[in-house]
Each structure stands twice: as structure tokens, then as C-alpha cells.
Design a binder for these strands. Structure first.
Length: 416
RNA sequence: CGGGGCGUGGUGUAACGGUAGCAUACAUGCUUUGGGAGCAUGCAGUUCGAGUUCAAAUCUCGGCGCCCCGACCA
């Protein structure tokens, strides 16, 4: 992508009412646009990052056998009435609206009910189980208070997976696989070190659940973590569980964190009320045993900005950066050589399948460097008269201050 | 939802109740060209509605919006 064609521009100054670092930097660098409180549009750079995160999650969900599908945002009240989750008393953050010809619909804040109903058409026998399905879907939650930039919005993308098993024992096998898959996702996203498997309350589903909590002051949760086992206990159940669930360690460290994923054992909570059942080997009717598994890709994105940015801007991990390489041309007084060489290098890199953002703009170097640091692409390559004379590329990592002069083949090797 | 703060060009900021100014961005021209260049010219603004007043960005009331703390967070 040529930066001269990128319609988003960086800004020198940030909107003064933003406090959250993730909102400040993502707006300043042109990744997102705030539409209103808690509602963000993703611009080309932001969408690229989001798609990288989605790609990682998708691979890991597929690896545990999940099948991707896409459910509706508009919800039929009937199915929610059966589970008792349609009323505003039961669920206070519904967005509800009316259909013109009569009747109400809701905007989905989660999808247990609709998917359970769909599965009634497909599950008949124990032979149809176990099974899991997932989607990336926009969720709507009428939060009384949106906050912390993209970390807590009223509209946000969510990966939600649902598992359907014959019984608890079968469910637990999948549940453990899901935990491992989640760990891989957060590690690959570059926040594995700061992310803790956290024992938490199960809300209205079950007594306990597991959350994945990432340490950051921008978060709104409090966890008590065991440094030995890398697990934590959510503050909300610390009265019941005051020691490490793994090793019994009683000296837990209290930290602020953000919940970037959660997994619940649903049991037969939904299958019973919606009558999702199968016939077992003996021909007896059994309710399907369910679980649900959520991740907020936007929360991962915002959390990475919170954790990894520095005073100059964002620092993306290579796996989720919008581009692999930021190619910058320094066009001096007679810049034709540089322009030609830059264009040529850009074409060659693109042909190799390398994702390059090419700053071909006719502006001064200082501005290009500042933008590059702000945008946060992992590798920067500068092409200039100096570089052309040396016959090498000037390569610098976003996180390091040292510049390497590499031949083009050597540079290509560093990317593979 | 309770409490607090704040709404001025695209963005960031000034202005005692009395001419809405500065910076940046943008446009044009010339000069410049390795860490957000210089000069000149131009474009562009008081959140909305009532009220007080000779006069309101400024004071009062209300709406709308944004941020923060708390409550909530399936």
C-alpha cells in the first residue's frame, strides 16, 4: 500500500477529552474513528490489525474442531423469552427496537439462544455429538457507561464459540482444549506473558467460570494472581477462593486487569428450556451439555496498545501489525533516483508477498519518521541517496534504536 | 443510573458581559529537504433552545453530546 493513497492521516494532536491511551493512539494514528461514546469505526489500518487478530483466533478455533458460521444480529424475542432472558429485569443491557409491521426485535448481546435453537434442527442422535461452532459477530450492549476507549463499547466485535456435548465428561475434554487454544491465541497475539487464566464467578450460568485476564491499569477488573502458577482468582470470588487453585499458595498479588476472554460451562441451562436433546445409545432422551467461549478481538487490540506502546506511538507485535514493513523514502533536492529506487524496492517486496506500507509522500523526513513511529509497524526500511550509494538497505526495528545496513537478500532473510 | 468535569474553525487552545484571537491542519506560490521546515496569501469557529441584558462564547434554565469516579458488566 502506498501511503500517499491511504485516506487516513495521522494527527499531530489528540482529541483532548480522550484519557485512555488506546483511544488516543488509535485515533491519532488513524486506526479508528470514534462515532460516539463506546462506538468505534475501524479504518483501513485498524481493520488490518483486527483481521490479523481474527486470523489467529480463527486458526486456533478451527484447530479444536470449531466450525465457523455467522448468526444474525437481529433477535427474535420468542427464543429469549423461553430462556428468561428477554425481560429488561433479567438483562438490563438489551438494545430493543420495533419491526414496522409489528413486533419487537433485539440486537444480540450474545448468541446462546439462537444457536441452541438452530442446533435443534441438526442434533438428533448421540452420533451428532460432540460439536462446536463459532462466529465473529458484532455484539450490542446498552452499557450504562462506555469507557476506556475500545475496551468497553456498546457495539463491538466478539468471537463466540459454543460447544455441544453428550455429557459433562465429554464437555470437560473440549473445555480443556479450549483453554489451551485460548492460551495459544494470546501468546501469538503478543500478550501471553501478561495474560492469566483466572477463576471467576459463573454469573447466571454456573458457580464458576474461567476468564483470561490481561494485566493493565486500563482494565476494570481486579484479580489476585499466583506468580508460581500463572493463574489468578477474580476479586469477585476471592472470599470463596482465597488461595491459588493450582498450588494452594496463599500469597496472591492483587492487580488490575482487563478481561479479554472467558469460557463458561453452560450445562443444560439452555438445552432444557429450548429442548435441545438427543437419543443416546439406549434410545433415551438426554439434554445436550453446552459450553460457551468468548474473546473480544477489539479488546486484544486495545490491550496491546495499552501494554506495548511507548512515548512515540504504538508498537505492534509482528503477528498482528497492519503491515510487516514500513518502507520510507527520503526524497531530497534531486529525489528522482530515490523515488525510482523506492518504487522498485516496493514492487519487489510486494512480489515476494511481503506486506509493505510505502511512504512515498513528498514530505519532509522528520514527518515520515514521526508517522512511522506512531503507526508502529515492526520493521522500518529507509531508502535514501545515502542508502543507494552504499548499495544496502537501512533497516531498523520499531523497538530498537540501532540501524542495520543490510543487502536486499539479507533483509529478506530477516523477514522469513 | 448517582456524583463530578467539560462543550470555541478539521485538531489543539485564548478572549473582564463590549471588535471571536493564536497555533496546527488544509489550499496556492517561492525557498527548503535524515526526526513533525521558513516566508507570504487564502479557507475555516462559539453544541442546540429559551431567558436576563443596550450588548452573551462569557450569566441563568433546559436539551443534546463527550470525559472521569462510582454502581453495573450474563
Amino acid at each position: 500500500m502506498r501511503q500517499s493513497q491511504l485516506f487516513t492521516k495521522t494527527r499531530k494532536e489528540v482529541p483532548s477529552d480522550e484519557i485512555a491511551k488506546n483511544a488516543k493512539l488509535l485515533i491519532q494514528a488513524g486506526y479508528v474513528h470514534k462515532e460516539m461514546a463506546g462506538v468505534y469505526s475501524f479504518l483501513p489500518l485498524g481493520l488490518r490489525v483486527m483481521n490479523k487478530i481474527i486470523g489467529i483466533i480463527r486458526e486456533e478455533m478451527n484447530a479444536v474442531g470449531g466450525q465457523e458460521l455467522h448468526l444474525t444480529a437481529l433477535q427474535d424475542p420468542n427464543v429469549w423469552q423461553k430462556s428468561g432472558r428477554w425481560s429488561d429485569e433479567a438483562v438490563d443491557n438489551w438494545f430493543k427496537t420495533k419491526v414496522k409491521v409489528g413486533g419487537e426485535v433485539g440486537l444480540a448481546f450474545t448468541h446462546e439462544e439462537p444457536l441452541t435453537r438452530i442446533m435443534k434442527d441438526h442434533i438428533r442422535s448421540y452420533k451428532d455429538l460432540p460439536f462446536s461452532a463459532y462466529q465473529f459477530q458484532t455484539k450490542f450492549r446498552n452499557e450504562t457507561r462506555a469507557k476506556s476507549g475500545i475496551l468497553r463499547g456498546r457495539e463491538f466485535l466478539m468471537k463466540d464459540m459454543y460447544s455441544f456435548s453428550r455429557h459433562e465428561k465429554e464437555h470437560e475434554v473440549f473445555y480443556k482444549k479450549a483453554i489451551d487454544a485460548y492460551k495459544k491465541i494470546f501468546t501469538r497475539s503478543g500478550i501471553g506473558e501478561e495474560t492469566y487464566l483466572t477463576f471467576s464467578s459463573g454469573g447466571s450460568f454456573s458457580k464458576y467460570s474461567h476468564e483470561f485476564q490481561t494485566l493493565t491499569l486500563a482494565g476494570e477488573d481486579t484479580i489476585h494472581l499466583c506468580e508460581k502458577c500463572s493463574v489468578a482468582v477474580n476479586e469477585e470470588i476471592i472470599k470463596d477462593q482465597s488461595a491459588c487453585p493450582e498450588c494452594g499458595n496463599k500469597k496472591l498479588a492483587k492487580k488490575t486487569s482487563v478481561e479479554i476472554g472467558n469460557i463458561f460451562t453452560l450445562g443444560t441451562r439452555f438445552s432444557e428450556v429450548l429442548d435441545l436433546a438427543y437419543l443416546d445409545e439406549k434410545g433415551e432422551k438426554q439434554f445436550v451439555f453446552m459450553g460457551s467461549y468468548g474473546i473480544g478481538p477489539g479488546r486484544i487490540m486495545g490491550t496491546i496498545v495499552e501494554l506495548l506502546s511507548d512515548e512515540k506511538g504504538i508498537v505492534w507485535p509482528a503477528a498482528i501489525a497492519p503491515f510487516q514493513v514500513h518502507l520510507i523514502s527520503i526524497i531530497g533536492a534531486n529525489g528522482e533516483d530515490v523515488r525510482k529506487e523506492g518504487d522498485g524496492l516496493y514492487e519487489r517486496l510486494m512480489k515476494k508477498g511481503i506486506d509493505v506500507l510505502y511512504d512515498d509522500r513528498d514530505i519532509r523526513p522528520g514527518e515520515k519518521f514521526a508517522d512511522s513511529d506512531l503507526i508502529g509497524i515492526p520493521t522500518r526500511v529507509v531508502i535514501s541517496e545515502k542508502a543507494i550509494k552504499s548499495g544496502r538497505l537501512e533497516v531498523k526495528g520499531r523497538k530498537t534504536d540501532t540501524v542495520q545496513m543490510l543487502s536486499e537478500p539479507d533483509f529478506l532473510k530477516t523477514l522469513s
